[in-house]
């Protein structure tokens, strides 16, 4: 077995791969925060049926959910430079690829989060919004202070699924030239011809990242939060 699979090599390359984990985490965190803002905005547009925007949002969500992430990634990373190139911005390659990747990830994740947030905002009792407005808050204030915090709380399990799937999608970004764990594994594999060990390493890191996110969600969900819906506890005498 020794010549086919080297445990030693697997162990000694793990720290090297771990040092590239920051790209994965950076991309996940930034794009997820941006996607939550985008998703909430899109959800609100759809709930209030804003004239032209509603149709636009439906199209956007349907497109993102109907096409693979890879296609979207390639479409933006290779298509947008072609458009810009035609308009005379020739030095498009000087822009960092990471910027495009973040854009795609935000747009991709935003559509899924919009659907999640729409469901959870609708699940918040309408009386909450009315009560907030009746004491003189503007609609924006009412949403920001009263409705959205509760909606986010309800959406935690679904959002954590979405964050995990974004994390897993980051394994695809090396296709467009961002050096992350997997592309480092690929580079190292082309020197040592020991791809399996390296991919196992990356797999293990991903498993731990996923478990960490999962643990974080369980903590958030069951922890004592300010915005927990306490109706159920109050009614029981």
């Amino acid at each position: 077995m020794g010549t086919y699979f080297s445990l030693e090599y697997m162990l000694e390359s793990l720290p090297v791969l771990l040092s590239y984990m920051d790209v994965t985490i950076l991309v996940t965190v930034i794009s997820e925060i941006a996607a939550m803002v985008l998703g909430s905005a899109v959800a609100l547009m759809r709930i209030h049926r804003m004239p032209a925007l509603n149709g636009l949002c439906i199209g956007y969500i349907s497109f993102v959910r109907g096409t693979p992430f890879l296609v979207q990634l390639y479409l933006i990373c290779f298509g947008v430079p072609q458009i810009l190139g035609a308009f005379g911005y020739a030095d498009i390659r000087s822009l960092p690829v990471l910027l495009f990747v973040l854009m795609v990830m935000t747009l991709h994740s935003g559509a899924y989060i919009a659907e999640i947030m729409r469901g959870s905002i609708l699940s918040i009792d309408e009386g909450q919004l009315e009560a907030a407005c009746s004491i003189g808050m503007t609609a924006a204030q009412a949403y920001r202070r009263i409705v959205l915090p509760q909606a986010f709380r309800t959406a935690i399990p679904a959002l954590s699924n979405e964050i995990i799937s974004t994390l897993k999608n980051t394994s695809l970004v090396f296709n467009v030239g961002v050096i992350d764990m997997l592309s480092k594994a690929e580079l190292m594999g082309s020197f040592s011809y020991r791809n399996l060990e390296l991919y196992l390493d990356v797999g293990i890191v991903y498993i731990f990242l996923c478990l960490a996110i999962h643990a974080g969600t369980v903590f958030l969900e069951h922890g004592r939060g300010r915005h927990k819906n306490q109706a159920a506890m109050v009614t029981v005498e």
């Binding site: 897993k168 394994s171 399996l196 991919y199 498993i207 478990l211």
Partner: peptide, 19 residues
């Protein structure tokens, strides 16, 4: 199975199974 990205599962099968 739920924690691994699809690509890594594919790679592990593609490189690991022949081995």
């Amino acid at each position: 199975g739920r924690a691994l990205p699809t690509l890594i599962v594919l790679y592990l099968v593609f490189f690991g199974l022949p081995l």
